[in-house]
């Protein structure tokens, strides 16, 4: 791995672009999860007694933070990174300077995770204003969503590195992201699933993000903290290494 501090110059490049459109970008990222949270939380929640020992909207809050962090990281690592890699040839321009391809991929990874963190934090703020959090321990969600952003950014970059066109990303969303959103305890407790699927859900990164975020927001002490963090970290490291090697095969041949 040929990594250096220059990866941060790549991060700063993306940040400078984002800064020009920061406000509409944040508001745009908020709209979709808020509709889910209010629509399902109040609409569906009104029909439900308590879910997991709390109101449905409070239950859904943690899932919404994690799912929208995942979506923000995935969109950035897929569509936006692919524009820079394939359409604008920004990566090639950067690699003519003393920046390695590994630096570029690392810069993209950190950037997508940063942007996802911002997205998740904005929702966390709205949730806190609604009184759906319990005390300062909710702030522990911030490092958690950064790690979640890293994991999904790394997975997304693997797909980007082999994508022939934007259409390719549809498969990733319909075959991976959408099913995962439904099976990771975002909308309902995992124990509602058949036993075999509960086991399978343990392999999904979003399950571990939600597994930590929910108790943190409900004022409970999370269990198996180390296990959740380990899974997200291992996925990040393995997917990043894969993304780098796939990108090398595409660009340095």
């Amino acid at each position: 791995m040929d990594l250096s501090i220059r990866a941060l110059a790549v991060w700063r490049r993306n940040f400078l672009v984002w800064r020009k459109l920061a406000l509409p970008s944040i508001l745009g990222n908020l709209a979709d999860p808020m509709i889910y949270l209010f629509g399902l939380g109040y609409g569906l929640g009104g029909l439900l007694p308590q879910v997991g020992g709390t109101s449905y909207i409070a239950f859904l809050a943690a899932g919404t933070v994690c799912a929208s962090t995942m979506n923000a990281a995935s969109f950035e690592a897929l569509y936006s990174a692919f524009s820079r890699l394939h359409v604008q040839k920004t990566w090639e321009a950067i690699m003519n300077a003393p920046v390695s391809l590994d630096d570029v991929v690392a810069g993209e990874l950190l950037w997508a995770a940063s942007k996802a963190t911002l997205s998740g934090a904005a929702i966390l703020l709205v949730i806190a204003l609604l009184g759906l959090t319990h005390g300062m321990q909710a702030l522990w969600v911030l490092p958690l969503i950064f790690l979640t952003g890293l994991a999904f950014a790394a997975l997304g970059l693997c797909v980007t590195a082999v994508a022939p066109s934007y259409d390719f990303f549809m498969y990733y969303f319909t075959l991976f992201v959408t099913p995962m959103t439904l099976l990771s305890g975002v909308f309902f407790p995992l124990d509602q699933l058949p036993a075999a699927m509960q086991v399978a859900a343990q392999a999904l990164p979003l399950t571990h993000a939600v597994g930590l975020a929910r108790p943190l927001l409900l004022g409970q002490v999370p269990t198996d903290v180390f296990g959740h963090i380990a899974v997200l970290t291992i996925i990040t490291v393995a997917a990043f290494a894969t993304a780098v090697s796939l990108a090398r095969r595409r660009l340095l041949k």
Partner: peptide, 15 residues
């Protein structure tokens, strides 16, 4: 980016 931003961002790649 603008013309100046293109040069600024590229210069950063050289540290």
């Amino acid at each position: 980016f603008s013309c100046a931003e293109n040069l600024l961002v590229y210069g950063r790649y050289f540290g």
